[in-house]
Amino acid sequence: MNFNSELMKKLSDCFSPSGREKNIREIITEEIKDYVDEIKVDPLGNLIARKKGNGKKILFSAHMDQIGLIITHVDEKGFLRFSNVGGIHAKEIIGLSMVFDNGFQGVVCCEELKYNEKLTMSKLFIDVASTDPEFVKKNFHIGDMCVFKSEYYETPDCTVCRAADDRIGCYIQIEAIKSHPVTENDVYYVFSVQEEVGTRGAKTAGYSVNPDLAVALDVTATGDSLDGIKMDVKLGGGAAIKLMDKSMITHLDVKNLLTNLAEENNIKYQYEVLEFGGTDAGPIHMTREGIPSGVISIPTRNLHSAAEIINKNDVLECIKLLKVTAASK
């Protein structure tokens, strides 16, 4: 299997911050509808696709939403005040271009700071580049969301894009659905909503599917850059099997299952302990009487930035691991 750059570009370039997942849901539905037995959208907006079987019930989950900004105030000069949707820090976005669903753009600017004054989100504003109050009034409203405006870019082994988190998880599930293994297992592929604002979609999807085993597909940080993050995961080190983050300690049975599957099938893997963050597996494993859960993570540099970097080979290893898990006894 080769890396399908065209598909990943399409997924990553799609505008769909948390709570506004309509666009990405339509793209994914179009991609997978001919390959699954059932497909539905639940009341929160999760897309739940099913490959039917009589065996073990397995849920895979990747979130469709991406981080962004939400407009809180529009003034007549065309300056927009905003708050963050998901984890975005003020100091990391000054000077970045943002794009809205309607295609219009704005630039994140900062008020003049006094000596030693702390930079907070309330000091920032978006300049939409217009001197025409009518244009501003007509096209920008409170509640509108915008996302990073950045170009998809590739090197021979890596991909740089704005929403690897977690469109790469969606990508992996789509590729797995298209080449779904022969198995008795009853497999649910969830494309969840609102992960970035508190893993909300996964909570309800986990409750409704109530599987025997759940595995989330999401990005994780790496310790191989110069950004000071201390961990063992590295780009190009293969699929990362998560052992702990702030939302979950991986069930030992699931740790052993994923490890054994990787070793038996010569899938390149690495163990991951993440000291911050969480995934869809967080709420899912605490559903009802508890659901043994794990995460297959995609090592990613520059998480939650406009240019997240992933390794294509890691992605292919993740797809392999997902598929053998889907067919596991």
Binding site: K230, M231, D232, L243, M244, V273, E275
Partner: peptide, 17 residues
């Protein structure tokens, strides 16, 4: 404590549970 990395010289980095 949980081991996060086996370091080059044989020390262990860890985080807390």
């Amino acid at each position: 404590l949980m081991v996060t990395k086996v370091l080059d010289v044989g020390f262990l980095s860890f985080t807390s549970v």
